[in-house]
Simulated scan of single mutants.
Amino acid sequence: MSQSYAVELYFDPALENQVLKAWNVLARRQISTQLIEIESRPHLTLFWSDFVDVAKLENVLRVIGSKQEPLPLSFSSIGSLPNDNNVLFLGPTPSASLLQFHSQLCDAMKKEGVEVGEEYRPDKWIPHCLVAQEVPKARMAEAFTVLRDLKLPVSGYAMEISLVEYQPVRELFSLTLGTHYLSEA
């Protein structure tokens, strides 16, 4: 199986717990357990690709992540993507700071020769935090109802930017936003 790579934002512990609550409720009802099974962490995906120069991308994340303070997030909607994976997500209010950070990341990646796929370009990107994958079609309405009981909005901060390899999930690089690295003497 080929590898895929994602750039993800991780949340502060309280917000992460709110998302995990959604994963666990859906798992208990046997609607969707996949995210738990693959040992993913609640996240917002900023970029995804099958072909990546890991060293280049890590460098981009180090530079852009060190300049960015933690980003306020407020998950205010529930959505589904129009692909056939029957995905459900929590959608953050698309704040200027989030959209600007994503746009700066894309610009920085392009400068390094990292190809940004169509769905992750700033004018096409749908910010989302997955809460369920491969939900049986017949249970989508039930899953939406379960998620509505979460009492949205849930708010917090994106605290970390990470480069993650998929299947299996493996964090290759992670940086707390706003952490300034000193060059090693």
Rank of each mutant, 00 (worst) to 15 (best):
Q3R: 13
A6Q: 05
A6V: 07
E8K: 11
L9W: 02
L9P: 06
Y10H: 04
A14E: 02
E16C: 00
N17D: 01
Q18K: 01
V19N: 00
L20T: 02
A22F: 03
N24L: 04
V25Y: 00
Q30H: 12
I31G: 10
I31A: 07
S32N: 09
S32M: 04
T33S: 15
L35T: 03
I36K: 11
I36R: 09
I38Y: 04
E39T: 05
R41N: 12
H43C: 09
L44C: 03
L44P: 00
F47S: 03
V52P: 05
D53Q: 11
V54A: 06
K56S: 10
N59P: 02
V60P: 01
L61Q: 00
R62S: 13
V63E: 14
I64W: 03
G65L: 12
S66M: 02
E69W: 03
P72L: 05
S74A: 11
S76G: 12
D84V: 14
N85A: 10
N86W: 05
V87I: 15
T93I: 10
T93A: 11
P94S: 14
H102P: 05
S103Q: 15
Q104P: 00
A108F: 10
K110H: 13
G113C: 02
V116L: 09
V116H: 01
R121S: 04
W125M: 05
I126T: 13
I126E: 12
E134V: 04
V135C: 06
P136C: 07
K137P: 09
K137V: 12
A138Q: 13
E142N: 10
L147G: 09
L150W: 08
L152H: 09
L152S: 06
V154H: 07
V154D: 01
A158K: 07
E160C: 07
E160H: 14
I161N: 03
S162N: 03
V164I: 15
E165W: 03
R170N: 11
F173W: 06
S174V: 08
L177I: 08
T179L: 13
H180S: 11
